[in-house]
Amino acid sequence: MSVLKSGTLSQERIVFLFAVVLFAAYALLLDGFLAPNNLVAILRSVSVLGILAVGMGIVVIGRGIDLSMVAVMAMATAWQLAMMNAGTPPLLATAIVFAGVVAVGIINGLLIAYAEVPAVFATLATASFVFGLVRSRFIVQDAVPVPPSASFILEFGQARLAHMPIEVVMFAVAAFLSFVALRFTKFGRYVYYMGDNYQAARTMGIPVRPMIIGQYVVSALVAWLAGLITAAGLQSINTRVVNSTLLYDVILVVVIGGIGLSGGKGGMRNVVIGALLIGIMLNGMTILDLPNIYQNLIKATILLVALIIDSRLNPRDEQVGQQGDI
């Protein structure tokens, strides 16, 4: 993505402009859209999506993709809650799930970095595997409630910081931390190098394989965080979210925000912009009482347009396209 190109209409600018126009249009046309509570609601509604997009963004910048995020989000949290429901002390349950989540990240990384499986397939497989394992072995129901004993989770979900719901705060924290990590640490710079040119990064001595594992561990942990926040808000976690379009929404946020799927470009700013656009759009459509299925169709169409614009800005042809790059 030509974020760095100045003076031209980069995708980020287009999206930002679009968001502003949409915002203005809604503000003029829809009653109550501008109410402070509605604006907070917009932010809150995209927070979990945004947190997931932060994790996905880091992976995509490193020229990967993590399709197992939603599965990890739902299943890790469900497993944790199920253990707590069964009487496991919260700390122990958290420690076990932490180990499990890290293990999923490592498996993804091993498959992608060492077995050289394309990221889409590796993470598609682990998503299915993680869902199946937890669903069939550790929990008996689609939805797992937060146990009554864990009132601190409820309180966490209700907490507000400077009038902002905790989800929004967590999204901001996650985005900021990732921004710092990507901008000012060695790890972050290496992620960009790797995403820009994997072979060159490898040749110049960057430990690309451990880096890939690191990326997927981070995205798995971020996913788990998103799950915990969801559970805190809803007092339960429903594992059927794995079958929903949430994952596609996450990719939508990342792509539409302007992080090119070919890697090495974009940053947390793009994630925030993408999340805001989606939030504004969905909020307006809900106010208009548009059924969910129409919303999906509109979202998908917008994503498709974004992909087409992406391909126009970063053309690939028979000579430069990489073999097996699907």
Binding site: S236, V241, L246, N292
Partner: peptide, 9 residues
């Protein structure tokens, strides 16, 4: 509105 049977929605 529809929840599409999804709690977050």
């Amino acid at each position: 509105p529809d929840s599409n049977w999804d709690v977050t929605t």
